[in-house]
Amino acid sequence: MPAKQAKGEYIETDTGNKVSRKSIIVGSQNIILGGKTIIQAECTVRGDLRRTIPSSSSSSSNSANVAIAIGRYCFLSRSSILRPPCKILKGQFSYYPMKIGDHVFVGEGSVVEAAAVGNRVTIGKNCVIGKFSIIKDCVRIEDGTVIAPNTVIPTFSLVRGRPGLVVEELAETAPEKLDLKQLYRMI
């Protein structure tokens, strides 16, 4: 596991994740990075806010502890925050795991408390993605959008406003446009 001794800002892991030394990763044992994911400085990832009640589905004990799972080619910009959502279900309070797909871009200063973010999702600067919202594949969220808790955003959507609403449909080329492989190579 010894990371390649990077000369610069980033620590690179075996799977190609580049994590800034100035990022704030809490509870790293509960965080899974898929590989080739970039985490910039001041970015906060709250892996310590894990599920406190046992999962109803009898999954293996290993995956039950995961608080945040992030896919490949994701990019978490400066000062963004990822924290798992919490709620009371049947009288019991708990945090619930957050799943983030591949090619997900989170802009500067954005706060993500979604339950699930799909593949190829671009979240602009200073956005707030409310608790338990579900963002499907191929979605672009414009700067300054506030998505209300429990919102579902379907595929090929352009989201804007406070609260964030689907304002436009993305073109068929959106999967190519939202690909972040090039971005990874630039870092």
Binding site: A3, T13, I24, I25, Q29, L33
Partner: peptide, 9 residues
């Protein structure tokens, strides 16, 4: 592999 938390000293 999750990265190690840096001490914030």
């Amino acid at each position: 592999m999750p990265p190690r938390t840096r001490p914030s000293a």
